[in-house]
């Protein structure tokens, strides 16, 4: 035990020496406190309703630069990220193939009544915060993945506090969660392909995942709805990603909270294997 303390203290001293060398001695060169040129460019362009200059062809019409980069400027990047997550859940479903729904039993009542009541009060707040992060994703920090992760915490709370059988009691089966997640993915596919369909029908040039008009393409998603800024594709992509991510995590935690005997029964695996 004493040896590990010596290791810890020597590691901390190395960190302090490195921090001193980089900040005060400047061994990595001078540290610039100015905003970088690229950042300035994104901040100037991300929300630019001024239609008089040609810069409007480069805007994403969202004051939230991160969401604008994630779903507009680097949209295909995020699309592939979603694909990776999709594949991970498909692999989990393949391992647990055959299990479509969790039976609701009264057995396994979960933790004490205090914890259960507090959790019951927390869950509606959690849902409200998650939905708020998703629908304000194009205005304030946050977005589809953040909101999905926030909502997925509910699945952990349900599995730990009320036991894995609570999903069945709430009518949330694996097939339902998979259907909701697929709806989210379909939403992303629809928003991605809509400009293409419009381009074919109207005979103009459009781009995949196009949000706002470009120099050679007049196509624009509705930027405002009932006087509110919805930033074209961004709110729809955030909502679709919210569904896909949150119910993807729901599927994973439903499968993880299953009892081993149940899984073995469904998969037809005996104890000897």
């Amino acid at each position: 035990m004493r040896r590990s303390y010596i290791v810890l203290i020597s590691l901390i001293s190395v960190i302090f020496v490195l921090a001193y060398l980089t900040t005060y001695m400047g061994i990595l060169g001078p540290i610039s406190s100015d905003t970088r040129y690229l950042a300035k460019l994104f901040l100037a362009l991300t929300y630019n309703p001024d239609t008089s200059t040609s810069l409007r062809y480069l805007t994403a019409m969202s004051p939230e630069a991160v969401t604008a980069i994630v779903w507009d400027y680097r949209g295909i990047d995020t699309f592939y990220e979603t694909t990776v997550f999709f594949m991970a859940i498909v692999s989990a479903l393949t391992i647990y193939r055959g299990i479509t729904n969790i039976e609701s039993k009264t057995q396994g009542s979960g933790l004490s009544i205090i914890v259960r009541v507090v959790t019951k009060l927390l869950i509606p707040m959690n849902i409200a915060i998650a939905v708020s992060i998703a629908v304000h994703g194009h205005l304030t920090p946050g977005g589809g993945f953040q909101a999905g992760a926030a909502l997925a915490v509910i699945s952990v709370l349900l599995a730990v506090v009320f036991s894995g059988y609570s999903f069945g009691k709430l009518g949330m089966g694996i097939s339902k969660a998979v259907a909701l997640r697929s709806m989210g993915l379909l939403g992303i596919a629809t928003v991605t392909l809509l400009p293409l369909i419009y381009g074919i029908v109207a005979g103009v040039q459009t781009y995949l995942m196009q949000n706002y008009m470009k120099v050679d393409s007049p196509f624009t998603f509705p930027i405002y709805a009932w006087g509110q800024l919805i930033s074209g594709t961004l709110i729809w992509l955030n909502l679709a990603e919210f569904l896909a991510v949150s119910f993807g995590f729901f599927v994973i935690f439903m499968l993880l909270s299953l009892r081993e005997e149940t899984v073995k029964k469904y998969l037809g695996v005996g104890d000897g294997h």
Partner: peptide
């Protein structure tokens, strides 16, 4: 980086330890 905070908190404090606890339980 508030965007990262919003995703990092639920994943690293809630979901990731929960997944590890399930696996340790098994």
């Amino acid at each position: 980086a508030p965007d990262i905070v919003l995703v990092y908190l639920p994943v690293s404090v809630g979901l990731y330890p929960a997944a590890l606890f399930f696996l340790i339980g098994k």
